[in-house]
Design a protein around this nucleic acid. Structure first.
Lengths: 337, 337
DNA sequence: CTTGGCACTCGGGAACACCGAGTGCCAGAC
DNA sequence: GTCTGGCACTCGGTGTTCCCGAGTGCCAAG
């Protein structure tokens, strides 16, 4: 029922509509793409495609526009991810290479991606759950307060101020630090609770209250940040695009960490590109938008996800190429550090 | 030439225009505000005000609209900062009280301010230049790499990975750490370069290259972050307002840290509220917007600035009240931590 | 100096006609 | 059976015209 020529017609419709932002008619199609058939034939095909729900007309007697289902078919079967040009690759490399720390990597990545795709870029901070503790530091601030710093092998640093019930001197701090590091060094974050469960018992009685306080802060900092940080950039690119839905909703969604998180994270495929098109998106207010996302991370393990958000009418091959490329480069950068 | 009644007329025009978003005519003014005079009189006053440049008419035979100069006069002489309601104050307090660290304080502040004013909130991270070093930490990552962490009394933590030319063992690291802390503890950031200038000379020759590397990273981290981090929130509030200028420009400006920085920072008044109205703003693209900003900081010293950005047609008394209140509360929170 | 009256101006909205891109369908050609 | 050219039809968008009413400026009188 949907033979090759009809697929070619659908592809042509998507491509034309993406580039012109106007409903595309049978004549224009016949002109611009050499499909080898007349407009009338194309019309018949279009009627079938519309019947199947791949395209729709905004009004009677207007051209056709791809539906979400049409974009889906296009992405799945009719398009190829478009690799970046050499110049673009070099630009990415040099732009990311200058990063000095994790914050900087994330910041540069999100800006780069926004600029590259001319859409809104979203980058999730590397998830701590998959990383390991590289060092724990206790810094006395004054008699009753410690700064507790946790450093992971992904370069992430968590800090908390610990208020103590009692006065503690530097020697005891040093001792606690040594014990903590002995216990936790190289330990995966997920297994931290188990590792420290019996730690107070192994300490002299006088140190137990302090240790318990510190551990509670440690555990809290792990849980607290389980909802990971997400940053975005490139909202200015939304101003040009006209959404079917108001862009107020889009901006609101972007500032809701939880929504963003689910957008990026719900797709659990590891390194594959995931595309969520229009109404496939569970959130009202983002109905007119699509998300292209990919996982990234150092080594073989995926640490987090990044992607872009744009109007449903986007150039999927190019966007997917950019997202994939950036994810790869960021992974490289992270692995090297 | 500009007597009290004319000022009252100007005030009424600003208030009406802000609330209705429509050019206000003489009749409407006479109706809504009891100025005790007839529309005709008001018309005469309006003609004078227009002559002076305080108001303008979009077209012949339309009502009047305040000019930037008119808003300026209104802010300077015709309005009083409107204090927040008790409920609002309590909301601020409870919202900010839950913050766990500096990042969290800033994040909560910017969101709070955006919600409170229904505009775009902008918050600058506390400037390091005014703060002091509380602790310097060196953490060996492996034989040739150190994590360098700098903790300030404002709760800020800077981190850098240091790549060394030579292998270094834990004892030497401990020694360097002790030396660095002895040298820098409690030292103001501005005076760091002086303090460390002769430090290598005071070390045994073998440690000098390593110390030099670490110091260069230290100094670089100070300089690097001299352009301070700024965050913003509430861009969704821009979607409703219609700018004379496209909001694309506004969004672009918001993502330019440098522009934001200058917007907040150029006004050097310490704790006073500063208001920049429309064209007083040096940046094209932000011509249709106003900025209300205030300094905040712990103790007597101002550390950084925060504010909101919105359409020139904004409710200045309320906005100023909200900005002032938030600045004060944040200062309290910071002072307490 | 203030006020009521009055003629004048224009922007914005409603009504309307027109155009043209695009469609669906059908009969004929390959 | 599939494709093609022809043809009548639809309807959104644009341009035109017209009208209304809010608002103004000016003037003469209080």
């Amino acid at each position: 029922m949907v033979d090759d020529r009809k697929l070619a017609v659908l592809r042509a419709i998507v491509e034309d509509y993406v580039s012109t932002n106007e409903p595309v008619g049978s004549k224009a199609l016949a002109d611009r793409h050499n499909l080898g058939v007349s407009p009338a034939t194309i019309r018949n095909d279009m009627a079938v495609l519309e019947e199947q729900g791949y395209i729709a007309q905004p009004h009677t007697s207007a051209g056709r526009v791809p539906t979400d289902k049409g974009y889906r078919l296009f992405v799945d079967r009719l398009s190829q991810v478009k690799p970046l040009s050499g110049a673009e690759r070099r630009a990415i490399e040099s732009f990311l290479a200058g990063a000095v720390d994790l914050d900087d990597v994330v910041m540069r990545t999100v800006r780069l991606l926004a600029q590259l795709t001319r859409q809104v870029a979203v980058v999730q901070y590397p998830t701590m759950s998959n990383s390991k503790i590289r060092h724990v530091e206790l810094v006395p601030l004054n008699e009753r307060r410690l700064m507790f710093v946790l450093i992971t092998n992904t370069g992430r640093v968590e800090q908390r101020v610990v208020e103590l019930q009692e006065v503690i001197d530097d020697n005891r701090v040093a001792h606690l630090r040594a014990v903590l590091n002995a216990c936790l060094d190289g330990c995966g974050l997920a297994s931290v609770p188990d590792m420290v469960a019996d730690l107070p018992e192994r300490l002299p009685a006088e140190d137990r209250p302090v240790a318990a306080t510190i551990l509670s802060v440690l555990l809290e900092s792990l849980v607290d940040r389980h909802d990971e940080k997400i940053v975005f950039a490139g909202t200015a690119n939304l101003a040009g695009a006209d959404f079917t839905v108001g862009l107020r909703d889009v901006l609101e969604a972007l500032e809701e960490q939880v929504v963003l998180m689910r957008l990026l994270g719900e797709t659990s495929d590891l390194s594959a590109l995931t595309v969520r098109i229009g109404s496939e998106n569970p959130y009202t207010g983002l109905q007119g938008t699509s998300i292209v996302a990919a996982g990234y991370g150092s080594g073989g393990k995926q640490l987090a996800r990044l992607g872009v958000l744009g109007p449903t009418r986007m150039d999927y091959p190019v966007t997917m190429g950019a997202v994939r490329a950036v994810a790869r480069y960021v992974s490289q950068i992270l692995a090297a550090s």
